[in-house]
Each structure stands twice: as structure tokens, then as C-alpha cells.
């Protein structure tokens, strides 16, 4: 079943002067439980594609469907709400709130969703244990290593029970061992719990672990290989 589907998706900059196609009529769908990485040189459109399907940016043309709901026509406030309930994000620069502990960071998104204290507590403890941070729940981001911070970010993304997780170059700021551990953990979540992951990356280690590799060039899909 398609979780994400795009139809002739285009993002055009300077449409009235010298049009630049960041995305050019991209038609792609992502299935539930996939572990996909989107690769390509800088400027190929992989981040733009992730921004479109993550509801962070609006296309110039075409449509984006998430679980059959068209999101490109939603207002900004509706998109914020949609992201909160349906999409998990992991960013390159960890992006945790520095004044919150690991537990509070992971719980934050559930509080935004208005989940009960009890439900949040159970889920967050479970997730942090799952990402190997059961003993570091009270630590602030500055007290955690880069790899640990990224694990908290994954726990936070999972906490909202999203339809899929978008990870923009999640290993780019990590050392080899931390990157390996993080990938291991995400692969396990995908295998065991069927969490759908979509990465943009330049990192060969991520590409090697992916089940599907989508290569982009000049705003188009150059190849789409399932392993």
C-alpha cells in the first residue's frame, strides 16, 4: 500500500524569468515498511523532494498524496497539524531543544498532540529504552554524544506514531561508529516494527543498508532500484 504518492511533482524557481527546475515532473510512490534512501549530487533535488513529501514546502505544480490525502493544497496551519500527526522528522544537525532532557525532548511531540501524561510516559520510556537511552533519560542534549542525540531525535520522531519518518542526512554529522549504531537501530525498527524510513544521504554506509535506492539527477528520478 502506498504511503506516499507524487503526481507530476515540480518545483520551479524563477518561473517568470529563467526557470530553474528543482523538481521536474516527479512521479514516485513509497510503500509502507520501506527503508529507502534518496541519493544524488548536490542540487539534484533530493532535499526538495523530501521537503515536498514532508509538507515543509509547497510544489509549483503537481500533487502530493500521503495515505491518499492530498497535502499540497492544505493551508500552512493545516500542514503544521498534518506534520504533527503523520510525519516524523530526523534532521542532520540533531535539532533537539537544548533546555529539555532526552525524555522531555522525546515527549514534547506527544504533548503537542495533546496525548495524556500516562500514555506519553509509557511510550517515551519504551522508545528511549529501544534506542538504547533508557539510562540517560534525564540528560540534556549537551550531556549526550552526537550519536546519542540523534537517537533521541529518532525516538522523538517515532513518539508521534507517524506514517513514515523522513531523515535528511541523518549520519552526516556523526562519526563512523555512531553512524553505524544509528543505522543498525533504524534498520531494526524497520525490520521488527515495520517503521517506514526515507533518507536523503550522500553516505555510502546508509546506501548500503537501504532496501530501495532512488537516484535523482537535475530534479528528475534517474534510477529507482529495489534490492
Amino acid at each position: 500500500m502506498s504511503v506516499i504518492r507524487t503526481v507530476n511533482l515540480s518545483k520551479i524557481y524563477n518561473p517568470d524569468t529563467v526557470p530553474v527546475y528543482a523538481l521536474n515532473k516527479v512521479n514516485i510512490h513509497f510503500e509502507e515498511g520501506e527503508f529507502t534512501c534518496v541519493i544524488g549530487p548536490s542540487g539534484s533535488g533530493k532535499t526538495t523532494l523530501l521537503n515536498m513529501i514532508g509538507g515543509l514546502d509547497k510544489p509549483s505544480e503537481g500533487q502530493v498524496y500521503i495515505a491518499d490525502q492530498r497535502i499540497d493544497q492544505l493551508s500552512e496551519n493545516q500542514l503544521i497539524d498534518f506534520r504533527l500527526h503523520h510525519i516524523g522528522f530526523v534532521f542532520q544537525h540533531f535539532n533537539l531543544v537544548p533546555v529539555l532532557s532526552a525524555y522531555e525532548n522525546a515527549a514534547f511531540i506527544m504533548q503537542l498532540q495533546g496525548r495524556s501524561k500516562g500514555e506519553t510516559d509509557t511510550r517515551v520510556r519504551e522508545l528511549l529504552s529501544e534506542v538504547g537511552l533508557g539510562e540517560r533519560m534525564d540528560a540534556r542534549p549537551t550531556q549526550l554524544s552526537g550519536g546519542q542525540q540523534q537517537r533521541v531525535a529518532v525516538a522523538r520522531a517515532l513518539a508521534s506514531r507517524p506514517k513514515f519518518i523522513l531523515a535528511d542526512e541523518p549520519t552526516a554529522s556523526l562519526d563512523s561508529q555512531s553512524a553505524f549504531n544509528l543505522l543498525d537501530m533504524m534498520a531494526r525498527l524497520n525490520e521488527e516494527e515495520g517503521v517506514t524510513f526515507i533518507f536523503s544521504t550522500h553516505d555510502q554506509r546508509v546506501i548500503d543498508r537501504a532496501k530501495r535506492v532512488v537516484r535523482m539527477v537535475d530534479g528528475r528520478i534517474d534510477s529507482d532500484v529495489r534490492k
Binding site: G54, E76, I80, L84, F91, S160
Partner: peptide
Amino acid sequence: MLMAIGMNK
């Protein structure tokens, strides 16, 4: 990041 993950305006 807060707005991206769903903190409304």
C-alpha cells in the same frame, strides 16, 4: 525544527 515537527504558530 519546532515548526517542522508540528508546533503551531
